[in-house]
Simulated assay, not measured.
Amino acid sequence: MSNAYLRNTWYVAGWSDELAGGQLARRLLDQPILFFRRADGAVAALADRCPHRFVPLRMGKRHGDVIECAYHGLRFDASGRCVLSPNNEQIPKAARVRSYPVIERHGLLFVWMGDTDRADAALVPDFGFMDDPAFATTHGYIHGKSGYLLMVDNILDLSHTQYLHADTLGCEALARARSEVVEHERSVDVRRTMRNSIQAPLTAASRGFADRPADAYMDTRWYPPSYLQMETCLAEPGTPRSQGKTSFALHLITPETASTNHYFWANARAFATDDESLSRRIQEGFAHAFEFEDKPILEAQQESMDGADFWSLQPVLLASDAPAVRVRRRLDRMIAEEAGPP
């Protein structure tokens, strides 16, 4: 079940600023898709394959809101309908490419990969802090050669940070913190509280708690299929959480194939919002941790699994695995329900 995909849901296809050049080609759930911005500002998404000789449409020319195939000149509009055949021949009825519903929100491109008539905008999670001028935000993208659920596991089990991110995102208190898991209809919450404790170097230094204790709160929310929102707050020991300094992190993972992923991350903070130097340090710190610490481990993990299903390898489970196991089981059920009876 782990290599199957939930299809009737939204996946992140990219950041809006990745469309600055006019179009973006990306493989999602094993499907090549071409995204481009129309003249009216909306984003269109078409299967990146001409139905004639299967040449990628990304190699063709743009004529306004129409894509011309580079091989024989068939032209397709934003709905996927063929509007021109070579030498003005009669257009075959089958000359059509699949179009995908797209929502642009919070600086992100969300694409619906399932049945078009079931696309529901209400299922896009609310990441409103990304649009809130009261927050300073940074974001990035990393391509990973590992299955997307390994990345989901990685974010849900933060006990690894003490070992893998000792100089940036890890600390002993986080490794020892107990996780409270609460399931909701559309999400799963993982809550961690760390009283009067030394926190991760990057997290603590950015809030004025370098080398001194804080009361720390870290709440992670998983939305299906693979969105993770993390709220981190550090407060003076013994003071209310409401008086602390809060940031949000996004970890949005989309499968490219069964063994590769697209990882979109962001950080939004509600303190020192005018400090551009701090923004650069956060950007560089997170990018380094994800690119040079998480990524090599996850890719080695993927290679070691040698294509086997996660559960078939009978992983030894620790107490810290509880959130990730709950999420994997929940997603497996959703995929099975969507597929229906065998």
Rank of each mutant, 00 (worst) to 15 (best):
R37M: 05
L149R: 15
I253W: 08
N87Y: 15
D17I: 07
V102W: 01
Q302F: 02
T232W: 11
R7K: 10
E231R: 13
P201H: 05
D117F: 07
Y217S: 02
D117L: 11
M230W: 05
E256R: 07
L150F: 10
R81T: 15
P32H: 03
P201R: 00
P125V: 04
L28D: 01
G80P: 15
I33P: 02
Y5W: 10
H184D: 09
S79L: 13
E293P: 10
M130F: 08
K61Y: 08
V152T: 15
Q243G: 15
R186Y: 09
G73T: 05
P255L: 03
A200R: 00
Q301E: 06
L164H: 00
F129V: 13
V325R: 01
G107H: 00
E291T: 14
D117Y: 03
P237C: 10
S247E: 14
C82N: 08
A173Y: 01
D167C: 03
D306M: 08
W222N: 09
E231M: 10
A94P: 05
P255D: 00
H139A: 13
A136D: 03
P225H: 04
L158Y: 01
I91A: 10
P101R: 00
R178V: 07
L74Q: 04
T220V: 15
E183F: 03
C50F: 11
G238K: 03
A20L: 06
R212V: 13
T168N: 04
L158E: 09
L164I: 11
K295M: 12
A42D: 14
Q314S: 12
A200G: 04
H63V: 14
D30L: 09
Q314K: 14
G128N: 11
Q301K: 01
P255C: 03
R105H: 05
E338Q: 02
I142V: 11
V55H: 09
A166V: 02
R7L: 08
A175P: 05
S226L: 00
T260E: 06
K145P: 08
S16K: 08
R326E: 12
H139R: 15
V182Q: 08
A39L: 14
L156E: 08
Q283G: 09
L29W: 05
S304H: 09
W265G: 01
S259T: 14
D275I: 00
D274K: 07
H165Y: 06
A270M: 14
E284S: 08
K145F: 12
I282H: 03
A70N: 09
L250W: 01
L123I: 01
S16Q: 12
G21K: 10
P201V: 01
L250C: 12
A210R: 15
K145S: 14
D332Q: 14
R191M: 13
I198P: 05
P86I: 00
Q90R: 14
A200Y: 03
T232R: 10
Q314V: 10
P342Y: 07
Y100C: 03
R241S: 02
E89K: 12
Y163M: 04
N196I: 08
H160Y: 06
L150W: 07
E183M: 12
M151S: 15
G73I: 02
W311M: 10
D321L: 10
I282F: 03
L278K: 02
C171F: 00
E256S: 05
R281G: 02
D132I: 04
R38G: 00
A308T: 13
D120V: 02
A258T: 14
E337P: 06
Y100V: 04
E89M: 14
D117E: 13
H184K: 06
Q301Y: 00
E104L: 03
